[in-house]
Computed example of a mutant assay.
Amino acid sequence: MASIEELFNEDLHGGEEINDMIHYNEYYIKCDNENRPSEILFPANGNLYKIQNGKPVECIPGDDPRFIEKHIEKAINNFVETTALKGNFGKASYYDDIIECRQDNSCLRILIDRHTKIVRISNILIPNTLVHQGLGKQLINEIYKVATKDDYKLHLVDMVQGFYKRMLKRGAKVIESEDILEITDQTRLID
Protein backbone atom coordinates (compact mmCIF):
# COMPACT_ATOMS: atom_id res chain seq x y z
CA MET A 1 0.00 0.00 0.00
CA ALA A 2 1.28 3.44 -0.94
CA SER A 3 2.27 5.94 1.74
CA ILE A 4 0.55 9.33 2.05
CA GLU A 5 3.61 11.00 0.52
CA GLU A 6 3.54 8.60 -2.45
CA LEU A 7 -0.18 9.27 -2.99
CA PHE A 8 0.44 13.02 -2.73
CA ASN A 9 3.29 12.90 -5.26
CA GLU A 10 1.14 10.81 -7.60
CA ASP A 11 -1.63 13.42 -7.40
CA LEU A 12 0.88 16.27 -7.75
CA HIS A 13 2.56 14.79 -10.82
CA GLY A 14 -0.35 12.60 -11.94
CA GLY A 15 -0.42 12.81 -15.69
CA GLU A 16 1.42 11.34 -18.59
CA GLU A 17 4.82 12.65 -19.54
CA ILE A 18 5.05 14.30 -22.94
CA ASN A 19 8.45 14.89 -24.56
CA ASP A 20 10.19 14.43 -21.19
CA MET A 21 7.93 17.05 -19.58
CA ILE A 22 6.22 16.13 -16.32
CA HIS A 23 2.55 17.07 -15.89
CA TYR A 24 1.73 18.99 -12.71
CA ASN A 25 -1.92 18.95 -11.68
CA GLU A 26 -3.68 22.14 -10.80
CA TYR A 27 -4.65 22.32 -7.15
CA TYR A 28 -5.95 24.64 -4.47
CA ILE A 29 -3.95 25.55 -1.37
CA LYS A 30 -5.24 26.72 2.00
CA CYS A 31 -2.61 28.40 4.17
CA ASP A 32 -2.35 28.78 7.92
CA ASN A 33 -1.87 32.11 9.76
CA GLU A 34 1.84 32.09 8.92
CA ASN A 35 1.13 31.61 5.20
CA ARG A 36 2.31 27.97 5.18
CA PRO A 37 0.27 25.40 3.23
CA SER A 38 -2.11 23.54 5.59
CA GLU A 39 -4.40 21.85 3.05
CA ILE A 40 -4.08 21.02 -0.64
CA LEU A 41 -7.04 19.94 -2.77
CA PHE A 42 -6.74 18.29 -6.18
CA PRO A 43 -9.96 19.01 -8.11
CA ALA A 44 -9.22 16.34 -10.73
CA ASN A 45 -10.00 13.57 -8.24
CA GLY A 46 -11.15 15.51 -5.17
CA ASN A 47 -8.39 14.22 -2.91
CA LEU A 48 -7.67 16.55 0.01
CA TYR A 49 -4.35 16.46 1.86
CA LYS A 50 -3.68 17.89 5.31
CA ILE A 51 -0.18 19.39 5.43
CA GLN A 52 2.10 19.83 8.46
CA ASN A 53 5.62 21.19 8.28
CA GLY A 54 5.47 21.04 4.48
CA LYS A 55 4.62 17.33 4.36
CA PRO A 56 1.29 15.56 3.76
CA VAL A 57 0.08 13.86 6.96
CA GLU A 58 -3.47 12.87 5.99
CA CYS A 59 -5.29 12.11 2.75
CA ILE A 60 -9.08 12.34 2.53
CA PRO A 61 -10.09 10.69 -0.76
CA GLY A 62 -12.45 12.55 -3.07
CA ASP A 63 -15.15 9.88 -2.70
CA ASP A 64 -15.25 10.28 1.10
CA PRO A 65 -18.77 10.99 2.50
CA ARG A 66 -17.44 14.20 4.08
CA PHE A 67 -17.47 15.62 0.55
CA ILE A 68 -21.16 14.89 -0.06
CA GLU A 69 -21.73 18.44 -1.31
CA LYS A 70 -19.22 17.88 -4.12
CA HIS A 71 -20.85 14.57 -5.02
CA ILE A 72 -24.32 16.15 -5.16
CA GLU A 73 -23.05 19.14 -7.12
CA LYS A 74 -21.42 16.84 -9.66
CA ALA A 75 -24.54 14.65 -9.98
CA ILE A 76 -26.76 17.69 -10.57
CA ASN A 77 -24.45 19.28 -13.12
CA ASN A 78 -23.98 15.98 -14.99
CA PHE A 79 -27.75 15.42 -15.08
CA VAL A 80 -28.47 18.95 -16.32
CA GLU A 81 -25.81 18.68 -19.04
CA THR A 82 -27.30 15.44 -20.41
CA THR A 83 -31.02 16.35 -20.40
CA ALA A 84 -33.40 18.97 -21.76
CA LEU A 85 -32.52 21.07 -18.70
CA LYS A 86 -29.23 22.04 -20.38
CA GLY A 87 -29.30 25.78 -20.95
CA ASN A 88 -32.49 26.07 -18.88
CA PHE A 89 -31.07 25.37 -15.44
CA GLY A 90 -28.29 27.07 -13.50
CA LYS A 91 -25.01 25.43 -12.51
CA ALA A 92 -25.02 23.94 -9.02
CA SER A 93 -22.85 25.77 -6.52
CA TYR A 94 -22.18 25.11 -2.86
CA TYR A 95 -21.89 27.62 -0.03
CA ASP A 96 -22.35 27.21 3.73
CA ASP A 97 -24.11 23.79 3.62
CA ILE A 98 -26.48 24.94 0.84
CA ILE A 99 -26.37 23.90 -2.81
CA GLU A 100 -28.25 26.15 -5.20
CA CYS A 101 -28.99 26.36 -8.90
CA ARG A 102 -30.78 29.42 -10.21
CA GLN A 103 -31.53 30.65 -13.70
CA ASP A 104 -34.54 32.58 -14.95
CA ASN A 105 -37.56 30.35 -14.17
CA SER A 106 -35.64 27.47 -12.60
CA CYS A 107 -34.43 26.89 -9.09
CA LEU A 108 -33.06 24.08 -6.95
CA ARG A 109 -32.10 24.53 -3.30
CA ILE A 110 -30.60 21.77 -1.17
CA LEU A 111 -29.61 21.97 2.50
CA ILE A 112 -27.12 19.50 3.97
CA ASP A 113 -27.26 18.67 7.68
CA ARG A 114 -24.12 16.71 8.50
CA HIS A 115 -25.13 16.13 12.14
CA THR A 116 -28.38 14.33 11.34
CA LYS A 117 -27.07 13.06 7.96
CA ILE A 118 -30.10 14.46 6.12
CA VAL A 119 -30.13 16.14 2.71
CA ARG A 120 -33.19 18.40 2.33
CA ILE A 121 -34.54 19.62 -1.00
CA SER A 122 -36.44 22.78 -0.12
CA ASN A 123 -37.05 24.14 -3.61
CA ILE A 124 -37.24 22.52 -7.00
CA LEU A 125 -38.69 24.54 -9.83
CA ILE A 126 -38.42 23.34 -13.43
CA PRO A 127 -39.02 25.86 -16.26
CA ASN A 128 -42.65 25.91 -17.44
CA THR A 129 -41.68 24.67 -20.90
CA LEU A 130 -40.22 21.47 -19.37
CA VAL A 131 -42.77 20.58 -16.68
CA HIS A 132 -44.58 17.21 -16.73
CA GLN A 133 -41.64 15.47 -18.43
CA GLY A 134 -40.43 13.82 -15.23
CA LEU A 135 -37.20 15.84 -15.13
CA GLY A 136 -37.76 17.04 -11.56
CA LYS A 137 -38.34 13.50 -10.29
CA GLN A 138 -35.31 12.24 -12.23
CA LEU A 139 -33.21 15.00 -10.68
CA ILE A 140 -34.47 14.03 -7.21
CA ASN A 141 -33.52 10.43 -8.04
CA GLU A 142 -29.95 11.47 -8.93
CA ILE A 143 -29.63 13.32 -5.62
CA TYR A 144 -31.15 10.33 -3.78
CA LYS A 145 -28.53 7.97 -5.25
CA VAL A 146 -25.70 10.16 -3.95
CA ALA A 147 -27.32 10.71 -0.54
CA THR A 148 -27.91 7.01 0.12
CA LYS A 149 -24.43 6.07 -1.11
CA ASP A 150 -23.05 8.33 1.62
CA ASP A 151 -25.59 7.05 4.22
CA TYR A 152 -27.69 10.22 4.21
CA LYS A 153 -31.49 10.39 4.10
CA LEU A 154 -33.23 12.58 1.51
CA HIS A 155 -36.15 14.75 2.63
CA LEU A 156 -38.43 16.97 0.59
CA VAL A 157 -39.47 20.05 2.60
CA ASP A 158 -41.51 23.23 2.10
CA MET A 159 -43.48 21.72 -0.81
CA VAL A 160 -46.55 23.13 -2.48
CA GLN A 161 -49.61 21.03 -1.68
CA GLY A 162 -49.97 19.54 -5.18
CA PHE A 163 -46.38 18.27 -5.26
CA TYR A 164 -46.71 16.92 -1.71
CA LYS A 165 -49.78 14.87 -2.74
CA ARG A 166 -48.13 13.60 -5.93
CA MET A 167 -45.06 12.45 -4.00
CA LEU A 168 -47.28 10.72 -1.42
CA LYS A 169 -48.96 8.79 -4.25
CA ARG A 170 -45.50 7.79 -5.46
CA GLY A 171 -44.69 6.23 -2.10
CA ALA A 172 -42.71 8.91 -0.28
CA LYS A 173 -42.70 8.37 3.49
CA VAL A 174 -44.38 10.96 5.72
CA ILE A 175 -41.99 12.41 8.28
CA GLU A 176 -44.12 15.40 9.25
CA SER A 177 -47.66 15.57 7.90
CA GLU A 178 -48.23 18.22 5.22
CA ASP A 179 -44.59 19.34 5.51
CA ILE A 180 -41.78 16.75 5.24
CA LEU A 181 -41.53 13.62 3.08
CA GLU A 182 -38.66 11.17 2.89
CA ILE A 183 -37.58 9.60 -0.38
CA THR A 184 -36.96 5.87 0.11
CA ASP A 185 -36.25 2.87 -2.10
CA GLN A 186 -40.04 2.39 -2.29
CA THR A 187 -40.62 5.88 -3.75
CA ARG A 188 -41.36 5.62 -7.48
CA LEU A 189 -39.43 8.51 -8.96
CA ILE A 190 -38.86 7.03 -12.40
CA ASP A 191 -41.82 5.87 -14.48
Rank of each mutant, 00 (worst) to 15 (best):
Y95L: 12
K70E: 14
F79R: 09
H71G: 06
D113L: 05
K74R: 12
K70M: 11
D104R: 13
D97N: 14
G87M: 03
T116K: 08
R114S: 09
K70W: 10
H71T: 08
C107F: 10
D96Q: 14
I60C: 06
P61H: 05
I112P: 05
D64S: 07
I110S: 02
S93Q: 05
I68G: 00
S106Q: 09
N88A: 05
D113P: 10
D64T: 03
E58I: 00
V80C: 02
A84V: 03
T82M: 04
G90Y: 02
K74Q: 09
K86P: 03
Y94E: 01
G90D: 04
D64M: 01
R109P: 02
F79G: 05
N78R: 11
R66T: 07
I76H: 05
R109S: 12
V57I: 14
A84G: 10
N88D: 06
Q103W: 12
D113E: 14
I98E: 09
L108V: 11
N88Y: 03
D63H: 06
L111G: 13
L85H: 10
S106F: 05
A84F: 08
F67E: 10
D96V: 06
T83S: 14
H71I: 06
I99T: 04
Q103E: 15
Q103L: 15
H115V: 15
T82K: 15
F89M: 05
N105C: 14
T116N: 05
V57E: 03
D64Y: 03
H71K: 07
G62L: 01
T116H: 06
R114L: 07
F79E: 02
N77H: 08
G87K: 02
P61W: 01
E58P: 04
K91D: 09
I112Y: 09
E73I: 11
S106T: 13
L85W: 05
P61M: 02
T83D: 07
E81G: 09
A75S: 07
P65A: 13
C59K: 12
A84Y: 10
G87H: 02
D104V: 11
I110Q: 01
A75D: 00
E58W: 04
H115F: 15
D104S: 15
C107V: 11
P65I: 02
I72V: 12
R102P: 00
T82D: 12
P61S: 05
N78E: 11
C59Q: 15
V57N: 04
R114G: 06
H115A: 13
R102T: 15
Y94F: 14
I76F: 06
S93L: 11
E69S: 13
S93G: 15
G62M: 01
C107H: 12
V57W: 01
R66D: 09
C107P: 06
N78A: 13
D97C: 10
P56F: 00
I99E: 01
I60Q: 04
N88V: 00
L85R: 07
A84H: 13
G87F: 04
E100P: 08
Y95E: 12
Q103D: 15
H71W: 02
N105D: 15
Y94K: 03
D97E: 13
R66G: 04
C107D: 10
K70F: 10
T82Y: 11
F89L: 03
I72G: 00
E69K: 03
I68V: 12
E58M: 04
D113Q: 10
R114N: 11
L85Q: 07
F89K: 06
L108Q: 07
F67K: 02
D104E: 15
A84K: 12
E100I: 13
D97A: 06
Y94G: 07
